[in-house]
């Protein structure tokens, strides 16, 4: 099993080579509000994991932590064997420097609810900017990669437009292409269809299904689209009050949830 619920918290769990992401006793507070409560779980390479739960239960914070947009108050996060927020110096764990964090973070890409495309760049540059300036690809290389991705997301004819000239659904496809252009091992999807008009949702979800099926990218997905979650997930994690209260394959979580809180939540949204 690729996930470990909180109940089996182990202070020094054995490290399994296939674990791509590992949270150990991670706690995060915003003021008095405990968003993540001594959380432990791991995700194996290539898995698609969906995080569900009521708002404020900590699922988005997991993604933001992995993207280093917020830092944990305590605990450690490991990504493909490296500590994300820490460095080992003389056998001791110390807060990591900027360059270490950036190095580990290169394995991770994220797609945001509000797309967050760069409005000052045309579609093509939105996609090539980071591969050129972060990965050091040549402009030609980056552009051919971008063209392939635009073909994948079906936006080849919009290559020279600015984001403001595109619809929400098109912008989100560009954002997906932009994240994929970095060839991440891990893709974080943060409610990627919540800001879209209803008729545009299906297209974006189909694209993501396609990516999930045809690539070996590990996906962590926060979504309220339960059908989509059922389709793509290997595992579903149910969050409540900063803890994982139940986890398992989607057939089990969606059809016969054990935890009362999970039943309530699913009844409320399905």
């Amino acid at each position: 099993m690729s996930t470990t619920p909180d109940s089996t918290t182990d202070k020094n769990p054995p490290v399994d080579g296939s674990q791509l992401i590992r949270f150990d006793n991670v706690t995060k507070r915003f003021g008095d509000n405990v968003v993540l409560d001594d959380l432990c779980f791991d995700v194996s390479s290539g898995k698609h994991v969906t995080l569900i739960g009521p708002s404020g239960s900590g699922k988005t914070t997991i993604l933001r932590l992995l993207m280093t947009l917020v830092e944990p108050d305590s605990g450690t996060v490991k990504v493909s064997g490296d500590y994300l927020f820490h460095e080992e110096r003389n056998g001791k764990l110390e807060p990591a420097g900027e360059s270490h964090i950036r190095e580990v973070r290169k394995n991770i890409g994220m797609v945001f609810q509000q797309f967050n495309l760069f409005p000052n760049m045309k579609v093509i540059r939105n996609i090539t900017e980071a591969p050129v300036h972060v990965l050091g690809l040549s402009k030609e290389e980056a552009e051919s990669r971008a063209r392939e991705l635009l073909e994948l997301v079906g936006l080849t004819e919009h290559i020279d437009k600015y984001p403001s000239q595109l619809s929400g659904g098109q912008q989100q496809r560009v954002a997906i292409a932009r994240a994929l252009a970095m060839r991440p091992q891990i893709l974080l999807l943060d409610e990627v269809t919540s800001a879209l008009d209803p008729e545009l949702v299906a297209g974006v979800l189909d694209l993501l299904r396609d990516i999930a099926r045809t690539t070996d990218i590990t996906m962590l997905c926060v979504t309220h689209e339960m059908n989509f979650a059922r389709d793509i997930s290997d595992d579903v994690l149910m969050f409540d009050a900063g803890k994982i209260i139940e986890s398992g394959p989607p057939e089990k979580i969606f059809s016969e949830p054990e935890h009362e809180r999970t039943q309530q939540f699913l009844n409320a949204i399905l």
Partner: peptide
């Protein structure tokens, strides 16, 4: 702030974010 976050998510350095994303906008 979302622009800063998008820049971080693509692993730009702080200087790169300033120069390529924040100052042009």
């Amino acid at each position: 702030a979302a622009q800063r976050e998008a820049g971080i998510a693509l692993s730009f350095t702080r200087m790169q974010r300033l120069r390529r994303i924040e100052i042009p906008q």
